[in-house]
Design a binder for these strands. Structure first.
Lengths: 195, 195
DNA sequence: AATAATTATGAACGGTGTTCATAATTATAA
DNA sequence: TTATAATTATGAACACCGTTCATAATTATT
């Protein structure tokens, strides 16, 4: 009964999984391929991760960290609240398009798998929403308006942005429509409808 | 080299697949289970469907048909353009929540699988957008405004609605937020931002 | 040095989608 | 009606999958 693991091989497994995920996509990843690439036996992985889901989920933190930093960096470039909200929206979408593998494990894993989705991952995801809510409050204050529920509106904004990303990742946008026009339109509609 | 198949068993396979899909969800479906339930041999399925994806895709038409009719029925209940647009949005979301299995194969199948996604399915999906665009034009006319690109706006609206559905299906909504409040908020924001 | 605890292994289990040689059936030709 | 050809049905076999577990190798403790 092993209790605490913190050896080199655990990190190696994680890094290998991340590399395979980014390089080949979620569907390519199998426990055998990870073991093979990480230079360990198949069973060894199960000493450090209870199952495949938990292993994959360990990468979600990385994704949220990367995303949060990208959004923070981008919004810090500007001071005007409306502008900050705009670049936040656009950066969210471009993150999704730039790192589809991360976006997939962060937001698109099938619901059934989510039974195993650890709660602390949700907490980490929430940090992004706090950022949105924060900037929303700035916008409201700047316009001299009182926002009833910035959290609800944050999630509401997220829905639109998430819709854009998933539609584009699933290649479901009508080819007659320009991708950038589509993104701009949703973002503009979103911004206009905020308050 | 079989060329044309139109026997009873093909329909039986399709119906069995649909039943298994609705009853147990996408992940439960395997070719063996379908064969077993349809009362044929494993290999028989491959006489009528090149592979699993194509078999599943055959059900997509059903989904789009069902959805289109639901949306049409709902919007026909009203005459006022704004109201028609509102119930359209709400019905779209409730369809997604009510028939997650269909919604999944219609809109959420992983992008990699979409390489095999037949083009005629896209065409069928477009009918829904034409309905949205149609109602959008009504709204514009009613308000005496000229809409530049109702197709683009249709897809833009879709993004928001699709975002709502996927977030709810993936159970990613913060539990502090009421589901109906969330839906209403997005729909209201969407309607307000249309023009 | 001997024992105990930990860590690593890979064969085995029951599943998956897909292929294909073979068998059964149906349609056509003599 | 019989013989041949074309079609349709079969399920074993292949190469994969996630997971388990008895066993082996290694490390720590006594």
């Amino acid at each position: 009964m092993a209790v605490i693991h913190q050896t080199q091989i655990r990190q190696e497994i994680l890094e290998t999984t991340r590399k395979l995920l980014v390089k080949y996509g979620y569907n390519f990843i199998s426990m055998r391929k990870i073991a093979s690439n990480a230079g360990c036996a198949l069973g060894t992985i199960y000493l450090y991760f209870d199952n495949k889901d938990i292993l994959i989920h360990s990468l979600i933190d990385e994704g949220f960290e990367k995303m949060y930093n990208m959004l923070l960096d981008e919004t810090r470039k500007y001071e005007q609240p409306d502008k900050r909200l705009e670049v936040l929206c656009k950066k969210y979408i471009s993150f999704g398009l730039e790192y589809p593998e991360y976006y997939e494990i962060m937001y698109l894993l099938h619901p059934e798998r989510m039974k195993r989705y650890p709660k602390e991952k949700f907490r980490r995801a929430r940090r992004t929403f706090d950022l949105v809510a924060e900037i929303l409050d700035e916008v409201a204050e700047n316009r001299g308006i009182l926002l009833k529920d910035s959290t609800l509106i944050s999630y509401s904004i997220w829905a639109s942005l998430h819709g854009v990303v998933t539609i584009l990742l699933a290649r479901r946008l009508d080819k007659r429509i320009d991708q950038n026009d589509f993104i701009d339109n949703v973002v503009q509609r979103t911004l206009r409808s905020v308050i």
